[in-house]
Amino acid sequence: MRALTPAEVLFDGETPPALLPVCDHYAGSEKLMLKSLALQAELGPVFDVTLDCEDGAAVGHEAEHAELVASLIGGEHDRFGRVGIRIHDFAHPHWRDDVRLVLRAAKRAPAYVTLPKIRSVADAAEMCAFIEATRREFGIEKPVPTQLLIETHGALADVFRLASLPTVEALSFGLMDFVSAHGGAIPDAGMRSPGQFDHPLVRRAKLEIAAACHAYGRVPSHNVTTEIRDMSVVAADAARARDEFGYTRMWSIHPAQVPVIVAAFAPRDEAIANAAAILLQAQAAQWGPTRHGDTLHDRASYRYYWSVLRRARATGRPLPPDAATLFGPVSKEMP
């Protein structure tokens, strides 16, 4: 009889929480898009590439830019199917055209569509519904996931309802716009470290977003670090986002940031080995309570250690050879 895997027994028939690559790298120009895709081909699908139809498009040339983005999705440079797009916001007249142009012209659907400057649940729901209707119109088999940018007062006030929308897979914090929306009440130090982690209003926003995501099995994605020279700043920001605020993903705006963010969110070797040992012992005990060293474990702690191994796989970390049985004969755990 085949040993049952954690995914089969630890979630009472429910889908395990969403798992996405831990870094979301943004690129707006053709040069930077191609450079980002080349880096992804080199490092593997440990990070996503988001092709930006919003800030990347020159005014009056939105259609041409969307067509460029579409030409790169599913093409020779998109090796892993982990390329998403950001479209214009709900108030912009071109957001529907972004969706139609990309879904019609791309060789395959984008991995996700990011919706910026969400102001209300109604706006987000309408955008999600339009994406769903468009993919059906063009014969795309599966729903296209959406990721919402939380950067307005309205979005933060409704963040739990936004996280509950059916096609949403992640919420991202838009730090710069959020601070600016306070009209100077938050000093500009709140847009960089350490202020972004210490100002009470910014802390509250980060925590609300993370809590909403974890309540609905979505992925909380942390904002960018604007430092592009000193990678120790990026690493420290990623560590604080991970350890203090519960984020499992982070934006990148420079190629040098990508490996730093991936490394920061990857479990350490000792944590991986410990998690594998505990879960293999639990699997041998048919997932009943066990004792590892001087600590008792049951399904609650098994779920935690399973998340460690899932994150290890998603970040390209090696697993102990005998841990393969925990993922089953045909694993769908990798994003």
Rank of each mutant, 00 (worst) to 15 (best):
11 F>V: 04
13 G>V: 04
13 G>L: 06
19 L>K: 04
24 D>H: 12
34 L>T: 00
39 L>V: 02
42 E>P: 00
43 L>T: 07
44 G>E: 13
52 D>K: 14
53 C>W: 04
60 G>P: 01
60 G>M: 09
68 L>S: 06
75 G>F: 05
76 E>T: 07
79 R>S: 05
82 R>H: 05
84 G>K: 09
110 P>C: 11
113 V>Q: 08
121 V>H: 04
127 M>N: 04
133 A>Y: 04
134 T>M: 13
135 R>G: 08
141 E>G: 10
142 K>V: 09
150 I>N: 15
159 V>E: 07
162 L>M: 11
163 A>M: 14
166 P>G: 13
178 F>T: 10
178 F>W: 14
188 D>L: 14
191 M>N: 13
196 Q>F: 09
203 R>A: 12
204 R>A: 06
204 R>M: 06
210 A>Q: 13
216 Y>A: 08
220 P>E: 02
226 T>N: 13
235 A>E: 12
236 A>Y: 04
239 A>H: 11
241 A>V: 03
249 R>W: 09
250 M>R: 11
251 W>R: 15
259 P>S: 12
265 F>C: 02
266 A>N: 07
272 I>Y: 09
273 A>I: 08
275 A>V: 08
280 L>F: 00
280 L>K: 00
289 P>W: 09
296 L>K: 04
297 H>L: 07
300 A>F: 05
304 Y>R: 14
311 R>F: 10
311 R>D: 05
314 A>C: 13
315 T>R: 01
320 P>D: 10
323 A>L: 10
326 L>R: 00
327 F>Y: 05
335 P>C: 01
